[in-house]
Design a protein around this nucleic acid. Structure first.
Lengths: 253, 253
DNA sequence: CGCGCCACGACCGTATACAATCATGCCCGC
DNA sequence: GCGGGCATGATTGTATACGGTCGTGGCGCG
């Protein structure tokens, strides 16, 4: 009943220093695993997350699952409907736009700050990350690509020196991943790699202004690639099926 | 958000309470009550929050208390020490500075946005709030003053139209309250009222630029009133009591 | 007198049992 | 056929029991 072997999936981007610790608490494992599954789109928005099933999946009781779900709900990554179970969150179009507005406000500042204080070691780690992004893209591994892309932004934020904002940005990035899952357009994609690379270059030459501007542009580009025009998942069923509706007081079949 | 008066904690909830209202989920009550107690300084930083005691105080089992504490911990309002219980968080000086940096980044933008879209009703509510702040100050009710001050910032944020940032600012404001509890200097205080009033005036004439600038100035002022020079609570006991230490293997001091 | 070990108490960590609630489908009267 | 009410199954809500861990004080030994 105790399978504590296979729980060591990729390091969650919210907790960069998670490895090498002695016996991580089980609820954090669950939190991290589910978080990772959500942000890498293995659990699409709307997916039901029954406590029993998760408890069985992790080999623990519902108690721990509940704790993890509670935390995920606080971060707006799942919706906790009273008496009806949890589902992966489905951010509205408005929320999506607000998310990007928030990131456009925060990230350029963070990048600017990081440019003047980032160390060579971190720079190297960033470079390695971008390389892995390219590899993931080359072999068409979208899950991994999304995860790595988020990690890139997170790492830069962590180098900014402001943990408060960096933590918040981590939440925004996770939620952005949900937005992408919901509103991405099938066609285009290849740009963000180059853009990450360019931000990194500016960072490496400690060009704060350029790095900030590139980041802002990158975010604009990301948002532009989404289809935020319609009302998304909140489709009006009444309007959608109006043409097929049997009119209550209308004859004429 | 907290307009619903203070519910007496400590009275047994076994009371039928069959009043007209449908009872709010117990865990939210606990969360709200503890949150309110923390931000109004009735629970100072460092205060222990044993699950048993809280459970008894609210007349519920530890299960619900744990849920509430979990959420409070996610918002960094309490520290959850493994196997050693929860205490009200004690933000470090660095965190305090980061908090203010974050607010200086976000709030002017939010105010600017609010200036162009706030309605007369909200404006009136804001005015009423400032009036109550003045009254609380007049009768020396610091708890209430702190609560109302936070509510003022929250309301403006809510009028900005960006819920994502407004929610985040709500967290920042709560944490700022902890910072004030830890680092406020005894002497000065009277300014923030006028500053709130001035921000409100600018808002009322839809002067976005002025409102943003006033808000930035207000935050500067608030931070300047704190004593963030020393290392705060993290006093080095070794150094503090060095003069009274019995030297283990050293003669002649 | 000082130091380390041990036992105890307080508290949290987790599992499990049972009650409550919602959604769904069935059935019956019309 | 159609609508409303009830039975039912699935799932969460809450309480409680038991075991584990940590901090602290006492005790005995050197």
């Amino acid at each position: 009943m105790r399978q504590r072997g296979s729980v060591q999936a990729g390091t969650s981007l919210a907790d960069p220093c998670a490895s090498s610790r002695r016996r991580r608490p089980a609820d954090e494992v669950i939190y991290g695993e589910v978080l990772d599954a959500i942000i890498s789109h293995r659990l699409p928005p709307g997916t039901a997350l029954p406590e029993d099933t998760l408890a069985a999946a992790f080999g623990v009781s519902r108690t721990l699952v509940r704790k993890a779900l509670q935390r995920l709900a606080h971060g707006k990554l799942i919706e906790l409907r009273r008496n009806r179970g949890a589902i992966v969150a489905r951010p509205s179009v408005e929320e999506a736009r607000e998310l990007f507005d928030a990131r456009r406000l925060i990230e350029p500042v963070l990048v600017r700050s990081a440019a003047s204080r980032i160390g060579d070691a971190e720079l190297e780690a960033l470079r390695a990350g971008v390389t892995r992004e390219r590899e993931a893209f080359a072999r068409g591994d979208r899950h991994e690509l999304i995860r790595l892309s988020g990690a890139f932004h997170c790492r830069i934020a962590a180098s900014s020196g402001n943990r408060v904002l960096a933590d918040f940005l981590g939440e925004l990035i996770s939620r952005t991943s949900l937005v992408i899952a919901l509103y991405e357009q099938p066609a285009i994609w290849p740009c963000s790699l180059d853009e990450h690379g360019r931000v990194l270059e500016a960072l490496a030459r400690r060009d704060a202004a350029a790095a900030a501007e590139l980041m802002r542009h990158h975010l604009d580009h990301c948002e532009a690639q989404l289809d935020l025009s319609g009302e998304g998942r909140a489709v009006d069923l009444m309007a959608l099926f109006a043409h097929a509706r049997a009119e209550p007081a209308l004859e004429a079949s």
